[in-house]
Design a protein around this nucleic acid. Sequence first.
DNA 1: TGACAAAATTGGAACGTTCCAAATATTTAT
DNA 2: ATAAATATTTGGAACGTTCCAATTTTGTCA
Lengths: 357, 357
Amino acid sequence: MTKARVTVIDIARAAGVSKSTVSLVLQGSSLVNEATRAKVNAVMRDLGYVYNRGAANLRQAGAKSRIIGVVVNDLTNSFFAELAVGVDMVVQSAGFVQFLSNTGESIDRQREVVASMREHGISGLIVSPARATDAADFKPLVAAGIPVVVVVRNLPGAKVSSIVSDNRAGMVSAVKHLAGLGHKRIAFLGGFPDTAVFDDRLAGYRSGVEAAGLDYHEELVISSAPSRAGGVEAIGKAIALGRRPTAAVCFNDAVAFGVCDGLRARRLEPGADFAVVGFDDVIEAQAAVPALTTVSVDPQGIGRRGAQMLLKQINAGKAEAETVTTAVRLVVRESCGAGKTAPARAGKGVKSKQDAE
Amino acid sequence: MTKARVTVIDIARAAGVSKSTVSLVLQGSSLVNEATRAKVNAVMRDLGYVYNRGAANLRQAGAKSRIIGVVVNDLTNSFFAELAVGVDMVVQSAGFVQFLSNTGESIDRQREVVASMREHGISGLIVSPARATDAADFKPLVAAGIPVVVVVRNLPGAKVSSIVSDNRAGMVSAVKHLAGLGHKRIAFLGGFPDTAVFDDRLAGYRSGVEAAGLDYHEELVISSAPSRAGGVEAIGKAIALGRRPTAAVCFNDAVAFGVCDGLRARRLEPGADFAVVGFDDVIEAQAAVPALTTVSVDPQGIGRRGAQMLLKQINAGKAEAETVTTAVRLVVRESCGAGKTAPARAGKGVKSKQDAE
DNA sequence: TGACAAAATTGGAACGTTCCAAATATTTAT
DNA sequence: ATAAATATTTGGAACGTTCCAATTTTGTCA
């Protein structure tokens, strides 16, 4: 049943030409006569020919496989899912396909998948590195001339391109907004302190606080896992403080949701009794109750942009490492207490993502 | 800069053996002497050898590329993201990698990505077909001996394996639950009638209604887009009915959220004034207010299971088309009015469905 | 018509691996 | 010590494509 593969040679024989001519047709060369081309194409269709990229790729050693590797930490997190979709869009329309893998923050797994991707001959790699990734890990790749673009988290030492959102500016605007609403004690909740993203966001928090003419208190910075559970934990500690804060900027939206949970468990209503601001603007942020005020980073845009950057480098042949910081903007909804005026949260503008099934 | 590739021949030369021996080492053959193996491995490490799967794959024509193609409709939808993660888990630990692509329900795009995957020589394909996919579309694949597993939506005519959730049983249990709470008029809201999934769920609704000793009224079945907006629309019609229903099972969670919105817009409180049950148990279901009572389908489990099925077929060499229906279970939360007893919905007790299987 | 240029076609020789059959080295049994 | 058995190693010949240099066909112009 498993029919023998149809090869260029079969096509050549059937069309009465040489395999070289068939190859030329395959590559859309202008050298081949129009009539011949038509005939060859017809035969290919009839015989159900499928191109063997592996073989082609073998011959044109330096040339490219048209495979892009994409490595993310957690596809379940819609932030990364959107990112992957953004990458897929541009990659697909450029005639590439994407290898997508999940590391789940495991550095070993990351090593494995990257190695596997290399064996398959990827043309380039887009990666959101797992926590504590060693900058040297991608050295062999770039040494082999494979462009690498790091997204979301940057990798200090590595000589690769990267594209991160403006974490600092985002936090500054979040803090300013809260200060503008009259809050004097604003906490910074969640996140692991050993990451570059944390540092950036914290720095933004600090300069926002100072810019608003408030004092920076170390006790108001409470780190935790960057997850919903972490948020619950962090707000617990915050409330236990002697002089408790009245508002908080959170490391990310997941933490912010956890903070809301924690507040409710203590009979405090997020938005009314305590202002909460997130970071990322994940899909759920606008549908949540109360809708989350957060810093929007457009992960899909980052994905698209990263992919474009990578394709550019692939085509250029040479990888000029560049670093891009994408703009972010504060989206004011209800959880900060500013949106009280609109009680009818019709949930109408909220374009659902769940449509299909 | 771009160093010439290190090949088995280089390794062979450096280790003082033949390329055949190196190849044997690569495949972990027991034929090779332990000392030799060690030496070869050492040299490979020193020279930074990377295996060229493309070349290997070329030689062992029939054999496999260790690439699994995964095609979903909308990665942005957490249902599919989870599914992909499930697939990735088993695929990865079996030493395969996954090509993941998004069709966005576009049938053309689906054709493109599948073609592209074929060119790359995938060993198997897992696909959640775009709406209105022709069963014949996958004919060439199976004819070429490439196993295909269809998930989530089934493809009537195609002779491929499929794995869908037990839509019928899920609806039956949802209806029974509502009937058990005393509801006499239960509506079925949302979904497009031209799909297999719709038919199954409707059938489940019907037998649930009859099993509860109630009458089946056609007017209580109101279809609409399977989206939040569709839910708003459907509940509007339902309320306009002469004898309005007091409860509804919805085609999916998105519809259910829309129904809640629609109820609130009419000053009715979901859970208290009208019972709502969804289907899918998307991530947002447990965090929503009120938390949604819904039928949990465990997309990650489907992904894992589908991948296992596919790997089995790949290893078996022969694709015995089988159809699996995965169990679902009703998760009772608040939107059906049954959870009133626990006002402290700390968001904690809700055991996440991600954990277990 | 012949000479020359342009257009179209074509046989190998790669690419990096695995497979096969055969060769060589090492043991074991006598 | 030698034959037989076993363990290890090894040169090619594939696999399906592209590239190169060379060849054949066609067209042009005097």
